[in-house]
Design a protein around this nucleic acid. Structure first.
Lengths: 125, 125, 125, 125
DNA sequence: GTGGTCTAGACCACG
DNA sequence: GTGGTCTAGACCACC
């Protein structure tokens, strides 16, 4: 369910983090069983374990999950809340970019159209 | 009029390019006199000349300006048109982020509101 | 009376050992009846039996208890003395941390106050 | 000025972090020049660059320093304040351990003596 | 089996 | 020169 684009400019560990956060919001992960292990993911995604380790460490730092020694990583109680707030942070990026568009004199209609286009695209997928 | 944030994650030369493009659109630069020299900028911005050289080279590559030996760098005839099209490229980023918002289940209204908020803010400035 | 925090960084078997030692000192365990069995604890604490086995083995190694075949694990005669000496070992940790405080320039009064505060808090409990 | 004990149970990157925080408090680092580079430290300390990278990343996350691309890591404006608050966190550990001592019936005098011993030792060094 | 740490060595972007 | 990312492979503790 997770897909990594190794050609992307975005670092692998960031791609992974974003996708896990989205899967948490979609309820894909059960709260009773551990998240997929570093080793398992390393094979299925063909990504080095260290890279995934780094990504999981970051998710843990955010409080989205925690480690049970010898067992694996479990979603924390407020994983959904945290994932949601992370997603909201990206709204701020949109706002920041929109401000640049405004300064550059791009009409607001063009920006709104881009957003709507993105949402329609998602609907058709 | 150009400000570089050395604490920013964004590379200095990119910050510089973006700001020059925006200043072109705002009509800040006259078409009759050369753009500020690398040497002068290096002092006022406390930035390595090599970095500014690289940024100007990129702007020349885009066709936004050209070098007149012995005089300096002049804005090209269609500098405004080029700067505008560069800014439009950032619309794609907004589109990409919007797609993520859509996948994460954030209502489109929230995204549109963020854009409008950004444009209102710019109006007051 | 024993509580395991699976979210803690401290390994489960260490948490268990520490708490047993403290319960011994507090006189919670009778010397006439066996300590709770691995099987019973495994259920009440939701902990892997292997983990408890390891913890009990360590306590036996320290001489705090011993196994009576067919009956269970009994506290040894000098269980209290051993538990006490184990607790004293943690004084070394306090000493190590205090040295760091000293090097960092934290006034000794602050450290002493922290210790006293901890003892007062325990008194009220 | 930094010394790593590879035999210690404490991870190298944690030892490094603690020592940097202490050196910040002692005013050892200048605010005008970058902190020692990962590569330089790797040689002088005989520690893998990745390990130091990880340590520095953590210090950056705490807000103690920041990266200037192509230049190095600079102390942030409130590095001292942050380092101080980090040190204070260790006081809480002492408090937590002291509570355990209290519960175990260790007389408070023993704990206070350990603290004082640590401070005297530091003075003689 | 799980995660945590470390080493060695490589490539890239930035200044 | 600087940091950032990634790979490969190893060892350890814990369960």
């Amino acid at each position: 369910m997770i897909r990594i684009d190794k050609q992307s400019q975005i670092p692998i560990y960031e791609q992974f983090i974003e996708q896990v956060e989205r899967l948490v919001l979609s309820g894909f992960f059960s709260e009773d069983e551990p998240l997929p292990s570093v080793r398992a993911l390393s094979q299925t995604l063909s990504v080095n374990p260290n890279t995934l380790q780094k990504a999981y460490a970051e998710l843990e730092r955010k409080g989205l999950c925690y480690t049970v020694p010898g067992t694996g990583r479990m979603l924390s109680a407020d994983a959904r809340r945290i994932a949601l707030s992370e997603q909201r942070k990206e709204l701020e990026q949109i706002e920041r970019l929109s401000k640049q568009m405004a300064q550059a004199g791009i009409p607001i209609g063009d920006v709104l159209a881009a957003v709507e286009k993105a949402y329609e695209g998602g609907a058709n997928k």
